[in-house]
């Protein structure tokens, strides 16, 4: 492989699971930084704002700066501004902060933006969204993740609720987060990396992290933590470039690539 320029790293399920770091992840990140490779944390964790994510990672002991976090919320915000949408935001209250400049407008909403908002995924809110969509509103999905891991078990992600609205209203959503290749491209552009084949993507979601990144040309590295379930590596074609036990193992593997190049 060419010289390794950058590593994109998923957060939830890869670096940590809720308020616990995955095994040896803090030390592994230090080792990776020592190699001088460029790093971006790319996340579909739409439930929380960048500030909340940053503070949690800091608290877990990770050496990280807020500017290194690239979220699907930022990507959604960009789309709302570009298309001048007046969105009904189905996102968690904690994430509203990242939408403060687009959430105030005159008149009725003309679009529905769906993030991860468990307390808002209920019939009255979804009916309101349905009516907006039936009257011609646009549906924007911050991402279409099927489920994610919490301390109490697997939980429904925003994707299933996007599918609910797509089926009922007969519309198709625009997705801005992973696995959209534009999302990975924008993250690499932020790092000043033009050639995706010089970058790795480490994540626990075989479809959203690995398949999406590999389609852009990155090397996909699936870790068997978080939402990973046995057999996930066979769910995409081509399969993941690498499959490793956890983030720490993945870093060692990538460092050996860097050493060889």
């Amino acid at each position: 492989m060419k010289k390794v320029e950058a590593v994109l790293i998923d957060l939830s399920g890869t670096l940590h699971i809720e308020n616990t770091a995955t095994p040896n992840a803090v030390e592994a990140l230090k080792r990776l930084r020592a190699s001088r490779v460029k790093i971006k944390f790319v996340t579909n964790t739409t439930k929380e704002s960048k500030t909340v994510l940053y503070q949690r990672l800091k608290k877990l002991g990770f050496d990280i700066s807020q500017e290194e976090i690239f979220t699907s919320l930022s990507a959604a915000n960009d789309l709302i501004k570009k298309d001048q949408l007046k969105p009904m935001l189905i996102v968690d209250d904690a994430a509203l902060e990242d939408f403060s400049d687009v959430s105030k407008f005159d008149g009725k909403p003309d679009s529905v933006v769906v993030g991860l908002a468990p307390e808002k995924f209920n019939r009255p809110v979804l009916n309101e969204a349905l009516r907006l969509l039936l009257s011609g509103g646009k549906l924007v999905a911050i991402h279409q993740g099927r489920y994610y891991k919490t301390s109490s078990g697997l939980s429904l992600g925003p994707g299933p609720f996007v599918k609910l609205l797509e089926y009922a209203a007969g519309v198709e959503a625009v997705t801005v987060g992973k696995p959209n290749v534009e999302f990975f491209k924008a993250a690499l552009e932020d790092l000043g990396v033009a050639d995706p084949t010089t970058a790795f993507m480490i994540g626990d979601d075989v479809r959203d992290d690995i398949d999406g990144a590999q389609r852009l040309g990155l090397k996909g590295c699936l870790v068997q933590t978080g939402k990973y379930r046995s057999g996930d590596e066979t769910k995409i074609s081509p399969p993941p470039d690498l499959v490793l036990g956890d983030f720490s193992n993945a870093v060692d593997q990538i460092l050996s690539h860097i050493g060889q190049s």
């Binding site: 019939r123 099927r146 429904l156 299933p160 609910l164 797509e166």
Partner: peptide, 15 residues
Amino acid sequence: MALDVGGFAKCLEYA
């Protein structure tokens, strides 16, 4: 207009 069961079924099917 109100959501019928179909959307909720598609929700679980996708997940």
